[in-house]
Amino acid sequence: MKPILTITNLHKHFGGVKAINDFSVTLEKGKIYGLIGPNGAGKTTIFNTITGIYDPTMGNIALNGESIVGKAPYEISNLGIARTFQNIRLFGNLSVLDNVIIACHVDAKYGLFEAMTKFGRFKKNEEDIKEKCLKLLQFVGLEEMRDDIAGALPYGHQRKLEIARALATNPDLLLLDEPAAGMNEKESEELVRFIQNIHENFDLTILLIEHHMDFVMSLCDEIAVLNFGSTIFMGSPAEVKSNPAVIEAYLGGEDDA
């Protein structure tokens, strides 16, 4: 299998804080990866560095063999990396449908004049986009809430909408930052099936951050355990569970946030 994302010797320092300290990983196409580690281990910072919000202090990130370091977040999105945020970032005052439609801007090929006059490709493009988005909303089970204001949705639905919005950009690699946060046992079991479903239907590689151990164990092919910005172990769920270093650093006394 070809690697889709290769991170080598990544560092990200904030002043004296070494949020990422020599992190390396290779993600193979089509697999589901987990990134776990205690609070403040640097997990979100890794996502922010992959997606171009931060430039790395050192090291390289390559997508399909080409470095994406220094590119703007929007460029990285257009290269096929989509994400959700730990503290949900929806377009709060806009409708559920518009949240997804916005993410389809690349599918709208019309120009400024066509937009202002509704001539040319405008109508066809807009119809196609709407159809695509309604399908997506149906897929994630939000089609009945299409006209609701996104910011007013219940928490769990907001998380699903963020995932739908990420899928609307046609990604190859999906980064999920704590998708099960705030969910109970039953909801997070449901979310496992939900993500498996997405994985099968959209031909994706997924990298997800999560604190719920059962969730990560039942979903991921491989798990990287992070502590103080460095990988302390990488392996299958079974290997992670039985590794003494991991148990000491993380699985031991640590409680979920």
């Binding site: 929007y74 970032r89 806009l94 801007h105 019309y110």
Partner: peptide, 23 residues
Amino acid sequence: SKYGRNLMAIREQEIAAEAVGID
């Protein structure tokens, strides 16, 4: 149109707007 929607995305959540590929 996509133009107005992209502007509203910037108004609502600039980081998310970039994250869905809006320059």
